[in-house]
Each structure stands twice: as C-alpha cells, then as structure tokens.
C-alpha cells in the first residue's frame, strides 16, 4: 500500500505538496490532507517529532474541518464491517477503508479529534500486525524498553516524572507495541497524558511490562499468567467489537504474555523505583 498520499496529491494544485502532513509512528505512516493552513500548522506542531516524508503510507485521510454541533464529550463509537471502519464522536466523524487505505475525516478544528482518530486507526493497524496500543507509559533505559500500565491515576505520568536523565520517554499515556521476530518492540508515540509532551520517536526491544499500583513500598512481584492476561487486556486499546477483532486482540495478548514478562509494580512516588526496573 504505497504512495497513498502522493497519488492523491498529483491531482491537486501546485499547493498540494504543502497541504498534507504525514505522521509516522512505529514505521506506520499515515498521510493527513487538509486545505486549512492553520490546521496544517497545528498538525506540524503537535506531531513534530513524528513527521515523515515517506511516500510509503499505510493510510491516507482527507480532513474536512467543520463546526460540529454534537456533544464533544460523547462516547467514541467504532464500527467495522469487512474492511470498512466507521468512527464517530461528538467532535468528529470518520470512515476508512482498511483495504485501500483511504479515508475521510469530518472534524472540529481541534487537535483532540485528530488525535482520537489516529489512536483508533493505529489500534487497528497494530492488531492486524499482532501488536497493540496499550494504555501505559513506556520508556527506554539501558537500550531496553519497559511498559508501565494501569488506569488513570495508577502512576503512569508519575513514573515518567521520576525518571532520570538517562531514561528516554516513549509516552506517558499510550504505548505502541509491535512484534519483532520472536520478541516485541516498543515505539515512541505522539500521544500524551498529563505530562503534556510527546514521547521520543525512537524504539527498543521490550524487556518487561509492569502493572502499576500505589503502595507504601517499592516492590516488584511476579504475576500468574491468568492475572497477567487480565491486566494486559484491561489496558489494551481496542475499539472494534466484532468477533474477528476480538479474536485478534485476544491472540495478540496471549502471545505477548508468553514472551514478555508481566510483573506487578507496587511503588512509592520516589525515584528509587527506577532502580528496580532494569
């Protein structure tokens, strides 16, 4: 699925080259086309570290900015039928054909809408490849990557704030995991939480996943496999409810817990916890 962006651009005016932005996370490049220069600038700022000039894109979206009148806090709805994906929230509507890679987004001129569309699209692209987006912080230390998973308030952002200068942050909120042969690799993402800054666009082999829990001491303990599976599944971002997708997510999670150690991390909010990580 190459050159989704360039093919379309050829039909456009001479300004076409300036009306698209390609974001690349984990080697999966998505082309975003929009005619509004201000919004294009917003994309360039928000995804600056993840901009790509590749023509080898896996998806391409035409963005139409509109005044959306629905409730922006409406729950996200995602529906898949065959290769067609439809997603909707109060501040956007989007459809995407996974087979052709083409899609359209009608959205409010807000970064949150495009961020949500990208999360859904990446979650599906990753599950197709045996990986997933996971609600976790992630970081690289000693050339190995670690995930710190848990719901809001469990300490993901805190772990990032406690990290020393030798630690490279991949995300404080949404991590990107792909199989890499017989192992897994974690990639930096532009998706962030309370830390309010994107991760670094780098990657490393994934060494362990920690399930976070606040406690009066720092301690790492093993988890039995069924607990590990439940913990990982609870944190994987997936939006499609169709059996085919559920099957893919479940298969991906089961393979993941067999290969990557999943451990419980109880921690105090102090930097000492990082000594137990690597």
């Amino acid at each position: 699925m190459a050159s989704l962006c360039s093919r379309e651009s050829e039909r456009k005016t001479t300004n076409a080259a300036n009306s698209s932005f390609t974001v690349d996370v984990g080697g999966l490049a998505i082309c975003l086309r929009v005619d509004d220069p201000q919004f294009l600038k917003l994309l360039e700022q928000r995804y600056a570290g993840f901009q790509s000039r590749t023509r080898n894109t896996v998806a391409a979206f035409d963005i139409s900015l509109q005044r959306m009148t629905e409730d922006p806090d409406e729950d996200l709805a995602v529906q898949t039928t065959g290769s067609s994906v439809y997603m909707r929230r109060g501040d956007f509507r989007a459809d995407w054909n996974m087979k052709t890679g083409r899609g359209r987004i009608e959205q409010a001129p807000s970064p949150y809408a495009i961020d949500s569309v990208l999360r859904v699209v990446y979650s599906l692209l990753l599950v197709e490849r045996g990986g997933f987006l996971v609600h976790s912080a992630s970081a690289i230390t000693g050339n190995k990557a670690y995930l710190f998973a848990g719901p809001s308030g469990s300490g993901k952002t805190t772990m990032c704030r406690l990290a020393g200068s030798s630690v490279h942050l991949l995300s404080d909120e949404i991590s990107f995991v792909l199989p890499d042969g017989e192992a897994y690799r974690a990639f930096g993402t532009p998706f962030y939480g309370e830390l309010a800054r994107p991760g670094e666009a780098i990657s490393a082999p994934l060494d362990a996943t920690f399930i976070l829990r606040h406690a009066p001491l720092n301690r790492i303990s093993a988890m039995v496999r069924s607990s590990a599976l439940h913990a990982v599944m609870r944190n994987i971002l997936f939006f499609a409810k169709e059996p085919l997708w559920l099957e893919r997510v479940l298969a991906a999670a089961l393979r993941f817990i067999r290969i990557v150690p999943v451990r419980q991390m109880e921690f105090l909010p102090n930097p000492e916890i990082w000594k137990l990580v690597a």
């Binding site: 069924s226 599976l229 059996p243 559920l246 099957e247 997510v249 479940l250 298969a251």
Partner: peptide
C-alpha cells in the same frame, strides 16, 4: 459474538 482461546488447560473468553 465472543472470541475464545485456550490458555494452558483453561479457556479464556472475551
């Protein structure tokens, strides 16, 4: 509508 897999001697269902 569910997905199910064997894990060891147990079945996991989503």
């Amino acid at each position: 509508a569910v997905a199910a897999r064997m894990m060891g001697g147990e079945i996991v269902v989503i």
